[in-house]
Structures are given as structure tokens and as C-alpha cells.
Amino acid sequence: MKDNRSLHVALELADKDRDAALARCQQAAQALERHRLQAQQLRDYRADYLARWNGQFQQRGTVEIMRCYRDFMARLDQAIAQQALVVQQAEWQLEHARLHLLEQERRAAAIHKLLEKRAAEQALAAQRREQKHTDEQASRLAWNQRLESTGIFAAADIAPLAA
């Protein structure tokens, strides 16, 4: 029974670790989604900006405006590239969190299975003890009946033996 108590404590801790890993996994998934959304917004903004300025360049434009446009597009492309790296990092963190969650789930499941096995073993041992006790009672009863039928002992003499 002492082993079972320690297993129950270990299962409790494993469940807490699994729940914490699940929370981290959910946070990582939410962060990834935010980063992907931000990356998409940057790409959409770049496409809109490009479309606006393509119309502008159909008309006349100064060299200074053209230089500002190119500089801004370069910074925007750099921001998009940086955001892509942030998305990759978030994907890696999510994968790492998922693997950790899987490990914690396996650990909790193993402890739970061990507890079930121990409970089944204890139930089987209890059943065997009960069967042994029942067999012993039946054997004593049969023995007492045999002695009584032969007339060796009186029923009053047998009663203390049956108890």
C-alpha cells in the first residue's frame, strides 16, 4: 500500500506537469498564430503599398520620391524577412512544446497503467486469499462431517474445531 501512495503522489505530479506542458503548448500555438497574422499583415501592407505606388509611378514622380519609395520597400522587405524568422522560431517552439507535452502524457499514462496493474494484482491476491479461506472452511466442514459420521467425536467436540 505504501508503494501505491507514492505512485499516487507521482501520478499527481505527472498530471500537474502534463497540465503545465499543455498550457505551454497552447501558449506557443497562440503565439505562433499571432506571429503568422502579423507576417500576413506585413505582406498585405506591402502588396497594398506596391499597388498604390505603381499607380503613382504611372504619373510623374521625382527622383527623391522614387528613392524614398525604394528605401521604404527595402525596410518593409527586411521587416517581412525578420517576421518570417520570428514565425519559424515560433513554429520550433510549438514543436518543442508538443514533444514535451507528449513526453509528459506518456509519463502520466505509464504511472496510471502501473497503478492499474498494482490494483489488479492486489484484487487477485485478495481473491486468492478469500478462495483459500473458503476452501479451508469447506475442508474443515467436510473433515468434521466425516469425523462425526464415523462417530469418533461427538458434535459438541467438533464445534470448537470448526471455529
Rank of each mutant, 00 (worst) to 15 (best):
Q83H: 09
F57V: 05
A142F: 07
R146C: 09
E121T: 01
R75M: 10
L101M: 05
A90M: 03
A142D: 04
Q131A: 14
K132Q: 14
M73Q: 15
Q58F: 06
T134M: 10
Q131L: 14
H96P: 00
A74W: 08
Q137W: 02
H133C: 06
Q131V: 09
L141E: 11
L102D: 10
R140I: 01
F57S: 05
A119G: 03
R106A: 09
S149F: 03
E103R: 11
I111F: 07
Q82F: 04
E103Q: 14
E130D: 11
A126R: 10
A79L: 11
R60E: 14
Q78K: 10
E121P: 03
A90N: 04
A142W: 06
L85D: 15
L114C: 05
L76Y: 00
Q104I: 02
D71H: 12
F72Q: 15
D71Y: 08
L76A: 04
A142G: 05
Y69T: 02
V63G: 08
R98G: 03
Q93Y: 06
A120K: 09
R70Y: 14
I80R: 03
I111H: 03
E64A: 14
C68G: 11
R140K: 15
Q89W: 02
G55M: 06
L114P: 01
L76C: 03
W92A: 11
A108S: 14
Q131S: 06
V87A: 00
C68D: 15
L147P: 02
E103M: 08
A123W: 04
E130S: 10
H112A: 15
F72W: 14
T134L: 12
R128M: 09
Q82V: 01
A138W: 06
Q78W: 07
Q104G: 01
L99V: 05
R128G: 01
A97T: 00
Q78D: 14
A142H: 12
W143F: 11
Q131K: 12
A142Y: 08
L99K: 13
S149L: 04
A123G: 03
L147D: 06
E103Y: 06
N144S: 13
Q83A: 06
V86Q: 13
A138T: 07
Q127V: 04
E116K: 12
I80P: 01
A123S: 07
K132P: 00
R129F: 07
L147H: 11
A126V: 02
I65F: 12
R70H: 15
Q59W: 02
H133K: 12
Q82M: 07
A120D: 08
R140C: 02
S139F: 13
A125G: 01
L124F: 06
V86A: 12
Q137K: 12
A138E: 15
E116T: 14
H100M: 09
T62P: 03
L114M: 06
